[in-house]
Amino acid sequence: MTSVVLALSPFADGIPLFLDALGAFFRPSTLFGVLVDGLAKAALYVMIASGLTLIFGLMGVLNFAHGSVTMVGAYLGGLVMVLLVSQETGDPTRLLAFLLGVVVVFTALAALGGLLEMGLIRPIYDRPPLSQILLTFGLTLILDEFARIVVSFYGLQPISEWQAALATKPAALGQRHDLVVASVSGLKLFEIACGILTVVVIWAFLTRTRYGLYVRAGSEDSEMAAALGVNVRRVFTVVFALGTGLAGVAGVLLAWDQSWGASVPLAVETLLPAFVVVIIGGLGTFRGTVAAGLLVGLIDATMTWWFQNAIAFTGLPEMTIFLVLVVVLVVRPQGLFGVEEVGGH
């Protein structure tokens, strides 16, 4: 992507330089680069938020521990890859290590999620939502502190990205590749592919399987689903397990991304955008989450380009996704695809 750093101040000679930046932005290479960047961000947002939206849609539980599960997934997946990959390891083997990391993380965290649902969350379904929020927030504190203790014990810096895990990435993903009209990062293309795969798998689960049908029915009216013979409690457990497993898988991918990386603060860094995406899409709707992920990802990428290339200030782009949230909440409080009420139990 052509980089145009105008370093302009919005207060001096702003208009002519703004017009220059506008011209640069609409070059095909810039637009394509921003599009790829936006789709990669969207893919990550959708991967992070999917589990959260499935859990909230069916169970009405706002899982504040979701980001912490992603963080644990990043460390656990990173550990698998660090153990299997050395400097001499070729790209195919590194990809296989990633896949193994995904399988290990999904299995372990889905099992953890299932146990948490059965042991801790199930007994408080009939209590006010505040109980669930406090419980999952407490889990966040436990998981974050546990991770901090473990990584510190092994001599890692908890608040900065785990470089050894970043280094397990295949060389092809660390390089840029000429594609159509611009040079794009291999990792971003990989993230887009992972995002598409995640959406297809979840969509197929929800629309092509009996269990997916139960999830959609239970999300809309769990009492009616139970009266039709659906074991809603079992579906709750399966969905909580799937949701936490998906959160962990997103973490494995983030362990390769320099912008995120495996670190303890990753829990908060992923929880906030996940909530933003889920709220903008409409609490509990998967297609809303996908649409909101795309919207937020593309706006984020566009604003990042403008702030980095036309205003030379990198602090504000992250704020734009919260501005999108505010606008959506004002214009359409239930979100893009939201229904008035979810989690009918």
Partner: peptide
Amino acid sequence: RIFSQLTVEENVHVAVPE
């Protein structure tokens, strides 16, 4: 209490025992 976001076919499907 029809599942409003499920099709007629899907509404019937939910009610069919496994």
